[in-house]
Amino acid sequence: MTGPAALGPVLVVVPTYDEIGNLGAVLDRLHAAVPTAHALVVDDASPDGTGELADARAAADERVNVLHRTAKAGLGPAYVAGFRWAAERGYAVVVEMDADGSHPPERLPALLAALEDADLVLGSRYVPGGSVVDWPPHRLALSRAGNLYTRWALRLPLADATGGFRAARMELVSRLPFDEVASQGYCFQVDWAWRAVRAGARVVEVPIAFSERTVGRSKMSSSIVTEALARVTWWGVLDRLADRLPGRVTRPVPGRARGGRRTRVLR
């Protein structure tokens, strides 16, 4: 057996805040691409009615679930709440996907296919075949520079560690210390990709076409960028200092594993 069914039940976690203009279409595209996947909308008390729309979709479709939170607490905590919800209900695979339509649900079958021989699959904008559509030049330059800096600072062999479209086996999610993850914005993606690589996970990057949202406003802000820069720099410093400690247990070497490469790109 191959395909999503071979992996076990799949849950797509979709954090939302003021996404009433996008959520319905994203769920439609998701279920057209992978009809057996379930969705969990994690809504941070959106004032525009996104939570109510999600409730209506859940009432009409048993594949849609909703987790209401009482305040806007950030992307990282929303995903951690979704991971816990998935673990409690026996899902085998958890997927991260934005609600704004930037992540193409049509590429989810490719991510799930790659997961058959991996622990974590990243939808990547910056590997051969990947692309970014309709971003202004300064946003694209900031994203590329952030990924290059992350790769250097953390010695992380990933082209797109900041991307938020990814699929993971619950076995990996369950053994990573998400209770220790304090990152709020897209730095959360870097944080847990780095933890996965350090834990020796099999990580694959699959190309995607990332599109700028057409409805609503971006949640990107200077505070999110500042958080990412500060945390990645600090982690990199600690990582290099730890290499100098006598008697330190050597961490898994990114990019290598028994039988070959631990991180790779699928075209």
Rank of each mutant, 00 (worst) to 15 (best):
A182F: 08
F178H: 10
E116A: 15
W192E: 00
L120M: 05
R166N: 11
L122P: 00
S174L: 07
S124V: 04
A153W: 09
H138I: 10
D160Q: 09
Y126D: 10
W135G: 06
R139E: 14
L158R: 05
M170Q: 08
G146A: 15
P177A: 04
L120D: 00
W135L: 15
L115T: 04
P177W: 06
A196V: 07
R195A: 12
L120H: 03
D119C: 04
G185N: 12
A182V: 11
F178K: 06
L140N: 07
A153R: 14
R151H: 14
A153D: 09
R195M: 14
V121R: 01
T150D: 04
S174M: 09
P157V: 06
A159E: 10
V133Y: 13
L154Y: 06
A196T: 06
D119Q: 08
V133D: 14
F165S: 00
W135Q: 13
L115C: 07
A141V: 11
L122K: 06
N147L: 06
L122R: 04
R166T: 11
R151K: 15
P137W: 08
Y186I: 12
Y126R: 15
Q189N: 15
R125E: 07
F165I: 03
Q184E: 10
A167K: 02
S131V: 08
G185C: 12
S143C: 10
Q184Y: 11
R125I: 03
V181K: 04
N147D: 15
E180M: 08
L148R: 15
Q189I: 05
V190S: 03
P136A: 08
P136L: 09
S131Q: 13
E116T: 12
G146Q: 13
A193R: 05
V181I: 05
P177C: 07
T150N: 05
A167S: 09
L154P: 03
S183M: 13
S143I: 11
Y149R: 15
V181N: 09
A168S: 12
V133S: 09
R144L: 14
W152K: 14
R139F: 12
W152V: 14
W192A: 01
G164R: 01
L156K: 04
R139W: 11
P157Y: 08
A168Q: 05
G123P: 01
L154G: 03
A161V: 02
A153Q: 12
A153K: 10
E171W: 03
A193W: 00
W135S: 11
R195T: 08
A161I: 02
G123E: 02
P137H: 06
D191Q: 10
A141Y: 08
